[in-house]
């Protein structure tokens, strides 16, 4: 699917594409457990998958990613602090613990999983397992 056919409309096309996949049951098949935070988006890039989650205000050292088989567990703590003598006028940012597990509907190579965290965005790179990749069969 060409999401970026017209660079001027790239943003709204991309947003529409994401909206369309809100109805996708792609990740629902597995026995995912734990909480619902953080929300995740899953992308395909060639053979591999990328999971992206927004974790604004969470420190890199407070994020834990565990991989076992096809299941990923993402947990951590978000802290929101105020100075001692501050009068708080508005409080919208949420804080607390999070622990979420998702199971990918495809085999991934757990040893090849990479995590990157920048500007409050966590990206998990999940290479597809070699056994999942299509092989050409020589006709004898």
């Amino acid at each position: 699917m060409a999401v970026f056919s017209d660079p001027f409309n790239a943003l709204s096309n991309f947003q529409q594409a994401l909206d369309a996949f809100r109805a996708s049951s792609w990740l629902d098949a597995g026995p995912s457990g734990g909480g619902a935070y953080p929300p995740m988006n899953v992308f395909r890039k060639g053979d591999d998958f990328i999971i992206i989650a927004e974790l604004p205000g969470v420190k890199k050292s407070d994020i834990e990613v565990l991989v076992k088989g096809r299941t990923l567990r993402l947990s951590g703590t978000k802290t929101v602090a105020f100075p001692e003598k501050a009068a708080v006028h508005r409080r919208e940012r949420l804080a607390g613990r999070f622990d979420r597990a998702v199971t990918m509907p495809v085999e991934i190579n757990p040893d090849g999983v990479k995590a990157e965290y920048r500007d409050g965005i966590l990206a998990l790179f999940l290479p597809r397992a070699e056994s999942e990749k299509p092989k050409s069969i020589k006709v004898g």
Binding site: V3, L11, Q15
Partner: peptide, 15 residues
């Protein structure tokens, strides 16, 4: 997000 094809989405992104 170039070259990324969404397969599943739980949130949208924007400015």
């Amino acid at each position: 997000y170039k070259d990324l094809e969404p397969v599943y989405a739980e949130y949208n992104v924007g400015h």
